[in-house]
């Protein structure tokens, strides 16, 4: 039996807006095992961003329990959560969020700079390896403003995997990209998944669900659907059917 990476139990998150209380999450329970590729879908307001923030240890639940790799996050302070993010989580954002005017290598090195146990040589080696893994070995010293959206997102993915996280959290990671580049990025995610990484991909685009191994649908703070996808489509194959950019 594989390891449980994420276990959440009856998770609730309330926001106070003025005198009203908004229930963004109304009791969610699920577990994610090592090696799963989960898409979390929902329309805006469904609570998926709130869930992602909690999963990413950026936010804490109002009630309920959250275990990341066996560690309870609920009672953790800000600084401990920062360390947890640094060691166990890789984030990929919709808008890449690379440091401006900074080279790909420096961007990828960034998480390791906040980890004092990594030596500078190790940091450089790991960053180069991560960039090679996303296919950017020839763009190592390009600055973020000299790269296309797809390349920037690859740098962001390399940055997310450089610390060897237990979970990769993608927030609408293809949202800013055209169809072809989206499939390229999805192909990359699928490859990372094949290599054994656990991925959570949050999106509102229902098409993406077919490429993941499991799909969770949220609506109004509840899980309305949670099913395993037995016939995972290959993003690489779809990519092959798309017309080439220069045609």
């Amino acid at each position: 039996m594989s390891n449980t990476i994420i276990k959440i139990v009856n998770l609730k998150r309330d926001f106070k807006v003025g005198s009203e209380t908004v229930h963004a999450l109304r009791g969610i329970t699920f577990s994610i095992e090592e090696g799963e590729f989960v898409t979390i879908m929902g329309t805006s307001g469904s609570g998926k961003s709130t869930l992602l923030n909690i999963l990413g240890c950026l936010d804490t639940p109002t009630s309920g329990d959250y275990f990341l790799d066996g560690i309870s996050v609920r009672e953790m302070g800000k600084n401990d959560r920062a360390t947890l993010r640094n060691r166990k989580i890789g984030f990929v954002f919709q808008s890449y969020n690379l440091l401006p005017k900074t080279t790909a290598l420096e961007n990828v090195e960034l998480p390791l700079l906040y980890n004092p146990s990594v030596s500078s040589r190790e940091r450089r080696e790991k960053a180069i390896r991560a960039l090679e893994e996303v296919g950017l070995h020839d763009r190592i010293n390009h600055r973020s403003n000299q790269m296309s959206g797809g390349q920037q997102q690859r740098v962001a993915i390399a940055r997310a995997i450089v610390n060897d996280p237990v979970i990769l959290l993608a927030d609408e990671a293809t949202g800013n990209l055209d169809t072809r580049t989206s499939f390229e990025i999805l192909t990359l995610f699928q490859r990372l998944h094949d290599e054994g990484r656990t991925i959570i991909f949050v999106t509102h685009n229902p098409e993406i669900a077919q490429f993941s191994s499991r799909n969770i649908v949220l609506r109004d703070g509840h899980i309305t659907e949670d099913k395993t996808n037995s016939s995972v489509a290959s993003a690489k194959e779809v990519l092959a059917t798309l017309p080439k950019e220069n045609e």
């Binding site: 920062a82 360390t83 640094n86 984030f91 954002f93 969020n97 960034l110 906040y114």
Partner: peptide, 16 residues
């Protein structure tokens, strides 16, 4: 601010 947010999300503490 965004840069700060990013740095925090990848593990920078407030004092960093």
């Amino acid at each position: 601010t965004r840069e700060i947010g990013l740095r925090m999300s990848i593990g920078a503490k407030g004092r960093h």
